[in-house]
């Protein structure tokens, strides 16, 4: 079942830039129209975890804002759980959770618990359900010793986790996360990832997240890559890898100073006793490959897939020509 559907969404902003330098610069500015999204279409199935990637300014946040009803598209239609997010914002809001990593929901002056209680009233969560959900998240995210102390004394990781909880206490059907792990430590990151996976398997929650952190993508079933407002890729990591010819990285360690001619693949790095080559999946299976590795000058070797980091960097480079 489709829970999010975007059809040919476009959105432009008016931005201004100053034409001159100096004290009077702010009087002399010209307006430019920047296309944040250009005919973006995609859909998300119920229970999917989808990661939206893209460079800064590629339109990720704009897309999330349109899907959550904060902003209306100039043209095209967005449908979330069968509703128009802009026109039926309040109705939709009961069934979605929105975590904007850079902005907190937690009242700075009070313990996070007070904000949770406030959310209970906003989302009309029955008290027993609230207690059950709170217990579930507090255990999952290890917040036991945190959520009753004033929010201003919490660490950034704790704040982010509490912010996450505040946005999902009502057990929404879809959770939108805009950079949910920005600036937090690996343990806290792992907690949030664990919570996402657990919620999905237990409640069938759909997650739509934007991130710059590649490890976050590992939990996604599918990735979308936005580039300058266009949908540049929509598929799995495997499919992205296939796009670049299923390349592998072969790293070999050889006797120091030994001259060896590999004669296969493309050398990406060569040092005194180590070399890194890019080879195709086909080449790895060839007899020639086995012969080369039998060379007595080679002490050790390893084969690995192209990392997601590398794949995405290559995609950006390709898109930017």
């Amino acid at each position: 079942m489709e829970v999010i559907k975007a059809e040919s969404i476009s959105k432009s902003y008016k931005v201004y830039e100053t034409k001159s330098r100096g004290f009077l610069a702010s009087w002399r500015r010209k307006y430019l129209v920047k296309k944040a999204l250009d005919k973006v279409s995609f859909s998300v199935q119920n229970g999917e975890i989808v990661a939206l990637l893209g460079r800064n300014g590629s339109g990720k946040s704009t897309l999330i804002k349109i899907l959550t009803g904060i902003m209306s598209p100039d043209s095209g239609t967005a449908t979330v759980l069968g509703l128009d997010p802009w026109k039926e914002r309040i109705k939709l809001a009961f069934d979605i959770g929105v975590v904007l990593g850079a902005h907190t929901q937690i009242n700075w002056n009070l313990p996070a618990y007070d904000t949770f209680e406030f959310m209970r009233k906003i989302y009309k969560i029955p008290k027993p359900v609230f207690n059950k959900n709170l217990r579930y998240f507090v255990n999952l995210l290890e917040l036991r010793r945190v959520y009753r102390k004033p929010a201003r004394t919490m660490s950034l990781g704790e704040q982010m986790k509490c912010n996450f909880v505040a946005s999902i206490l009502h057990m929404p059907k879809i959770v939108f996360l805009d950079e949910p792990t920005i600036g937090i430590d690996i343990i806290s990151k792992a907690h949030i990832k664990k919570a996402i996976l657990d919620m999905r398997s237990r409640y069938g929650t759909t997650f739509f997240l934007t991130t710059h952190i590649i490890e976050d993508v590992s939990i996604a079933d599918r990735i979308l890559i936005l580039h300058e407002g266009h949908m540049a890729f929509d598929g799995t990591v495997k499919e992205l890898s296939r796009m670049f010819g299923n390349k592998r990285i072969l790293e070999i360690k050889f006797k120091p100073g030994a001259q060896i001619d590999i004669g296969i693949g493309k050398v990406v790095y060569k040092g005194f006793d180590v070399a890194r080559l890019e080879v195709s999946g086909k080449q790895i299976k060839s007899k020639r490959f086995a012969d080369i590795l039998a060379n007595r000058n080679i002490i050790d070797y390893s084969v690995s897939e192209l990392g997601l980091n590398e794949l995405i960097t290559r995609l950006y480079k390709r898109l930017e020509g």
Partner: peptide
């Protein structure tokens, strides 16, 4: 934070 506030059903 006005954006976050605006995602609530109120």
């Amino acid at each position: 934070n006005i954006a976050v506030n605006y995602t609530r059903p109120v």
